[in-house]
Amino acid sequence: MPKSTFKYTNNEVTVVWKPDTCIHSRICWTQLREVFDPAKRPWINMEASTTEAIIEQVKKCPSGALSYYLNAEGEKEVTAEIETAVQASILNIEIKKNGPILITTDCVITHGDGSKETKQGTTALCRCGQSANKPYCDGTHRKVGFETEK
């Protein structure tokens, strides 16, 4: 579970950022820089684009560190969507070159102590062994120069 959570709103939609879950894929700020800019504080400017564009970008977050909820519907967070009921029954795993293992469907993580955690949307698992947030990826693979053959 993330230790910190930050919320940013434009009164229509609220973006929730859980930095402890972030793998720093940079997808958010390379594709919608006017909203997501890590060089600025606050780094998320909710007034810089439309609600629709912000939602579409948040849905692309590979780690689930970014989620959103529509303010009119209450605080039910939404991450990457599962498009059909058929997809929901299929486990989809992607091995990122020089990066984490991505599980792109809802899953249950059973920890070493037996506790279980349900993850929705995309979950990034550490593959380099250096994450400070195991079993989840925290982007450390970039700092340690983790490389794979494939």
Rank of each mutant, 00 (worst) to 15 (best):
K3R: 13
K3A: 13
T5D: 03
F6R: 07
F6K: 12
K7Q: 15
Y8A: 08
N10G: 05
N10Q: 09
N10D: 14
N11T: 15
E12Y: 06
T14A: 14
V16E: 04
K18L: 07
T21E: 14
T21R: 13
H24P: 01
R26F: 01
R26N: 08
R26C: 03
R26V: 06
E34W: 01
V35F: 07
D37F: 00
D37A: 04
P38N: 06
K40T: 03
P42F: 03
P42H: 06
P42G: 04
W43Q: 08
I44S: 04
N45H: 13
N45E: 12
M46F: 10
A48G: 07
A48E: 09
S49Q: 08
S49H: 09
T51L: 11
E52C: 11
I54H: 04
E56A: 14
K59Q: 04
K60G: 06
S63V: 01
G64C: 08
L66A: 02
L66C: 03
Y69V: 06
L70A: 01
N71D: 15
G74N: 09
E75T: 05
E75L: 05
E77G: 08
E83C: 00
T84C: 10
T84V: 01
A85V: 12
L91E: 12
N92K: 14
N92G: 01
E94H: 06
I95K: 06
K96E: 10
K97P: 09
N98T: 07
G99S: 12
G99I: 03
G99E: 00
P100T: 09
I103Y: 05
I103H: 06
T104E: 05
T104V: 08
T104Y: 00
T105G: 04
D106I: 00
I109W: 02
I109R: 03
I109S: 02
G114C: 13
G114Q: 12
E117T: 14
Q120R: 10
T123N: 07
C126S: 03
C126W: 01
R127A: 09
C128M: 02
C128P: 00
C128F: 01
G129V: 10
G129T: 11
A132V: 11
G139R: 02
T140N: 10
H141F: 08
H141L: 10
R142M: 12
R142S: 11
V144Q: 07
G145F: 08
G145M: 07
E149P: 00
